[in-house]
Design a protein around this nucleic acid. Structure first.
Length: 472
DNA sequence: TGTGCCGGGGC
DNA sequence: GCCCCGGCACA
């Protein structure tokens, strides 16, 4: 995967659909094969299984299995020429999640500046870019979709002017709010913007079901959490207050929160101190005192914003307010895509950084054991139910739902967190001893093939076990 | 009575 | 682990 691909690939819906379709299509193929007759087959975790089975279902080796065709269609629909991944669905699904990570590795990382706020912030923008050694013209970067926003990996504010440091601080603190991301004052269409976070969400969501990765769910403080629009009132307040010149520093770079650090820093304190302008009819809220002072000085006191002179009068026109960032996160967490099969919804919202597949995210330390738990709980939202005729045999772990992104554990390795969760859930779901599960409606091998074709039965039926081929 | 399949046992 | 079967519950 080269950088060209990264830059040209939009992380949009179709890609998400690819993951989902490939998974489902794999299942479809599976069932088709099952229904087509008692063809013995082996299962694999990826789309290759579908292709492999298509060898038997379809006379042609190159015959396009449904799953493969869907993948190719998806590519036509915007995934470009990413054809080097072969037929396997895993690679296809993994591809989107790799993009951001590689983006961060781009030597010429850039910030996706909000093009809807041109003009005044240009100077500040250029200042920022200059300090980061970013020489690429801004216009080259702007066409990128908002959901795909790489940023410089190592931002070093040291040596910057106070203004720039302050701007960075403001951005970090405000980045939890989508309100700043997509100000209503923007002349451009807000719809793509609102769709942006949705896409990020869906991308993250679907990725969780596909790639071999996890997010560090223990990090609730990720400032990159994209947020659905909260209350309109809040929006108004924020947006109204975001039209001043100070907003530029807030708005201009806030998108960088999307992909800040691979491992975002924790926020120790959920209470965020903000500074609210007390000027009549002005509800501007900024996260830094200097910012609000400058706002008051320039907007309300009519002083030159470039002038560093301040008599301290601005102090009278703003006050500190505390904003509970957790409350925002909680509101967001309600949108967390959870699986109906999960025992409990993840307590935190998966940050979009989870979009980034990082092996270091997978290997979470034991002290963060809840992270894999979250993965296991949220991942199976789109599952490929994989079973075999021989699933009945051997360890029960052969018969279980397997998410695409979930690494298959050896049968002997029942200590995995995923299996632990199953163990925790299973006893409650297990029927009481002595009770039988109701007889299924589906015809079983015995009825389908009859006694004379007993060799065509599934193994379980032959052994008088629960039929594995025609399950209910 | 036929069927599905649990539980148990032999190898 | 593979394979078989007695026996029970259900339609």
């Amino acid at each position: 995967m080269d950088s060209r691909y990264i830059l040209e690939k939009p992380l949009t819906g179709p890609r998400v659909g690819a993951a989902d379709f490939s998974c489902r299509s794999g299942r479809t193929v599976l069932h088709t094969a099952e229904k087509s007759g008692p063809v013995p087959y082996k299962h694999a975790m990826d789309g290759g299984a579908a292709a492999a089975r298509s060898d038997k279902v379809s006379p042609k080796r190159n015959g396009v299995s449904p799953g493969v065709r869907i993948l190719q269609d998806v590519e036509k629909n915007g995934l470009g020429d990413h054809r080097d991944t072969g037929y396997t669905g895993i690679l296809k699904r993994a591809s989107p999640t790799h993009c951001p990570g590689i983006n961060r590795q781009l030597p010429c990382g850039f910030m996706h500046l909000d093009i809807r706020n041109p003009g005044k912030q240009a100077d500040l923008v250029n200042s920022f870019r200059a300090t980061q050694g970013l020489n690429a013209p801004l216009t080259e970067k702007q066409p990128l979709p908002s959901t795909h926003i790489p940023v410089p990996r190592n931002r070093n504010p040291s040596g910057h002017a106070d203004k720039e440091v302050m701007a960075a601080t403001v951005l970090t603190s405000l980045s939890t709010s989508p309100l700043v991301l997509y100000p209503s004052s923007a002349p451009t269409v807000p719809e793509p913007a609102s769709r942006g976070w949705k896409e990020v969400l869906s991308a993250s969501y679907s990725s969780s079901t596909s790639g071999n990765w996890s997010w560090d769910a223990s990090d609730q403080s990720v400032p990159s959490t994209p947020s659905p629009p909260l209350s309109n009132d809040t929006n108004k307040n924020f947006l109204l207050s975001s039209q001043g010149d100070d907003v530029n520093e807030d708005v201009t770079e806030s998108p960088h929160f999307m992909f800040e650090d691979p491992i975002p820093r924790k926020r120790k304190n959920s209470m965020k101190v903000m500074f609210k302008c007390l000027w009549k009819n002005c509800e501007k809220v900024l996260s830094t005192s200097s910012g609000i002072q400058r706002h008051v000085r320039t907007v309300h006191l009519g002083r030159n914003s470039d002038s560093d002179y301040s008599d301290g009068e601005e102090d009278f026109y703003y006050s500190e307010i505390e904003v509970n960032m957790d409350s925002l996160s909680e509101g967001l967490s309600s949108l967390t895509p959870t699986s109906p099969t999960t025992a409990a919804p993840p307590p935190v919202f998966p940050p979009p950084l989870a979009d980034v597949p990082h092996s270091e995210h997978i290997s979470v330390s034991a002290s963060q054991s809840h992270a894999p738990t979250l993965l296991s709980q949220s991942a199976p939202s789109t599952l490929c139910h994989i079973r075999t005729d021989h699933a009945y045999q051997g360890p029960v772990t052969h018969v279980r739902t397997v998410s695409i992104g979930e690494k298959r554990q050896p049968a002997s390795n029942t200590h995995a967190t995923v299996n632990k969760n199953h163990a925790l859930i299973t006893p409650a779901a297990k029927s009481a001893p002595g009770t039988r599960k109701p007889r299924g409606e589906a015809k079983k091998c015995r009825k389908v093939y009859g006694m004379e074709k007993r060799d065509m039965w599934c193994t379980a039926c032959r052994w008088k076990k629960a039929c594995q081929r025609f399950t209910d």
